[in-house]
Computed example of a mutant assay.
Amino acid sequence: MRLTRRGAAVLVAAIVLFGIGQWAGYPLFLATAGAAAGAVIAAVAVTARRPRVAVVRDLYPDRVERGRPAVARLRVRNPGARRQPGFTAGDAVGAGFQSVAVRPLAPGAEAVYHYELPTGGRGRHQVGPLTLDRADALKLGRRRLSTGDTATLWVHPRIYPVNAIAGGHARHHHEGQATEASPRGSLDVREVREYVVGDEVRHLHWKATARTGRLMVRDYADPYQPRFTALLDDRPESLAPPAFEEAVDLAASLAVAAAKADHRCRLVTCGGTDIATRGGTTVVRGLLDELCLLDRADGPGLPLVPAPLLTGGGGTLVVISGRLSEVDHAGLAAVRSRYPEQIVLALGTTKGNFAVPGAKVLSAVDAADAAHRWNAVIAG
């Protein structure tokens, strides 16, 4: 238990008034000092007993898009045999604090409360520990108690509806040598080769067997699926903090659309982040969790094209940036043989003042505008 600033001020005033009353012989000052001291004593008596309740907190949902509503449900129960006076319960959420007033509880009674959680900032936010706060009617004294465990609120980037990009490698390679990256199992024939023990008998190629006099089988491999690489420019000099959040939203929207379409996608940043997925709705949650923790690069002077893109390749390269220099243009030109189709999404710009040689440029003021322009130009 401790006195609030108001309580401390009242106590000091009581002492001063008592001294003046004693020295000057003013009964009114003595009476006022006594009333003030009595109020402080009453506040101490009221707040001396700490809240004795069982509290359970749940988050609904525990993962939410930036700006979408999320609530905490607080279930408070009085397990004792005495009436529990009212108090305030609240959670620290990031740098803020959310609270709710809990009414008095009879013995064995239970009450449920809800309060909204702030979701304006992308990231992984700790909720709690829960703080129980009891104060007297005049707010002179306060008893504060931390209880319960903490929870995690994942604020994901905002997802806009965008078309999944349909470009990628050629889908058929029936003849000739295939790369080791070609996964197996589809109905595209990679080659016809001699049978070895363990091959599927149903894949026997009878015409080739008759022609060569040896058992020959079809070797199948999956064609390269549509894929793209998103390059998010996280350099401080390229995007201011608000614009960077818009860029993350846009990158997340493109990656989620590709994953849901069961396309391979890869998200790379100038600062070294490299997130790859083979597609499928099951990977979306993990992808967005990783994007929750994405931050801007630590220093200026980084090249636009990071090292992983110099050795990788295939499909379409989508660059999300707010400003590109001539050096950045040269970097994109250096990887054009690996990424023949390049699209630049220029955030915070107007159409006509942003040009990149050899690339298609879509200028937009924010992520929502960029998603609209993307859907108007890119076929799903």
Results as ranks from 00 to 15, higher is better:
residue 357 P to A: 11
residue 327 V to M: 11
residue 366 D to N: 01
residue 336 R to D: 08
residue 327 V to S: 14
residue 321 S to F: 03
residue 359 A to E: 01
residue 355 A to S: 14
residue 366 D to C: 01
residue 359 A to Y: 02
residue 361 V to N: 10
residue 344 V to Q: 12
residue 347 L to I: 06
residue 359 A to W: 03
residue 331 G to T: 12
residue 348 G to H: 01
residue 328 D to L: 05
residue 353 N to H: 12
residue 325 S to F: 02
residue 356 V to A: 00
residue 363 S to G: 07
residue 344 V to A: 09
residue 320 I to M: 09
residue 341 E to C: 10
residue 330 A to K: 09
residue 359 A to N: 02
residue 352 G to P: 13
residue 341 E to Q: 15
residue 357 P to K: 12
residue 349 T to S: 14
residue 339 Y to W: 12
residue 340 P to S: 14
residue 328 D to I: 12
residue 323 R to G: 11
residue 322 G to C: 09
residue 324 L to P: 08
residue 352 G to H: 07
residue 331 G to C: 02
residue 342 Q to L: 08
residue 356 V to C: 00
residue 359 A to H: 02
residue 342 Q to M: 10
residue 336 R to P: 13
residue 333 A to F: 13
residue 366 D to Q: 00
residue 346 A to K: 05
residue 332 L to Q: 01
residue 342 Q to K: 02
residue 335 V to H: 01
residue 369 D to V: 08
residue 364 A to S: 08
residue 339 Y to E: 13
residue 367 A to F: 05
residue 353 N to E: 15
residue 362 L to K: 08
residue 358 G to M: 04
residue 334 A to F: 11
residue 324 L to N: 05
residue 345 L to G: 09
residue 326 E to P: 06
residue 353 N to I: 09
residue 351 K to T: 14
residue 350 T to F: 10
residue 364 A to T: 11
residue 325 S to W: 02
residue 348 G to T: 00
residue 323 R to K: 13
residue 361 V to F: 12
